[in-house]
Amino acid sequence: MSRTGASGVDFGRRVVVVRPVGRLPVRPAVVCLALGLAALAIGVLALSTGELSIPPADVLRALAGEGSGAYRLVVVEWRLPRVLLALLLGVALGLSGAIFQALTRNPLGSPDVIGFNTGAYTGVLVVTVYVGTGYYLVAAGALVGGLATAAAVYLLAFKRGVQGFRLIIVGIAVSAVLGSVNQWFIIKVNLQAALAAAIWGQGSLNGLGWGQVVPVAIGVGLLCVVLLGYGPRLALLEMGEDAAAALGVRVEATRLAYLIIGVALIAVATAAAGPISFVALAAPQLAQRLTRTPGIALVPSAAMGAFLLTLSDWLAQRAFAPTQLPVGVVTVSVGGLYFGWLLIRQGRAQ
């Protein structure tokens, strides 16, 4: 595994070449593995801590189906779904953020740009006020609201193709309108409902169980498979539309496809747990710094997302025990730290 190794080409970093399947750069692979293991480790930690403290060895036994019935109940029935959801949603958020940052070619690109969260909030408010407040109702409202908004923004920005800046500005405009609608609802509605909606708006994994894990796993799994099918096209799009088209990428269609996948991923996450800020923004950038890949890398972003969300959720549960914070509060703080780090790096670079 030297730098040129079995291949005759020096790629400037360690690469494992498997002809004819592909090349695997070593550093990103190692980082992904490390992040994955770290996420799993935190998962086990989350499974063992709580009102009932269970030693990690017993946790593992419970996962394997052995050990005391009480432990199995706590670990597998109560805590495991939440850990799995944190992992799955973290992957979804990391990938979604990565897609948006690659498409906008900007480290601050995020699904917020397309007004998704504001639209989801509108959906939730409409459902809460006119229909009811069950988990699935709210999730459906968020889904419909968010997707409809994303579609509207895309269509309004479409003029022989969608160009980055126009999409952002239209997203801002639509967000502003929907934001006003949301404000109006919040004022109109009674305090209880307004508070409930606001709490949803913070994002939380509280009270989620196996009923949520299965659809999320299917959704995220399918989207990942589709994403894989598109191969290296996202990286090619990052080189500019002309260069990508010259290499045989159908630019408009591919960009739309990625946009849809990115929106679908954030939709799954938001419907399941409410809007969780920052993971989508920070994960791809942190992953890129660690792996030193040129441009946005999907798998490391997913791994970093899983790690960040699992960590944040564990902190949300344990940091102010017994009060359970909404995970969105922890991720906002993480976000603040992340921005601070970005600024310090910027300061040093100058």
Partner: peptide, 27 residues
């Protein structure tokens, strides 16, 4: 054209092979 930050020469040149590659046949 935009060269992604931090890309090595050989990586960039290798991207030119995309039209000849398939999903499981990338090198």
């Amino acid at each position: 054209s935009i060269a992604p930050d931090g890309i090595a020469v050989a990586e960039l040149v290798a991207r030119g092979r995309f039209p000849h590659q398939k999903l499981i046949r990338q090198w």
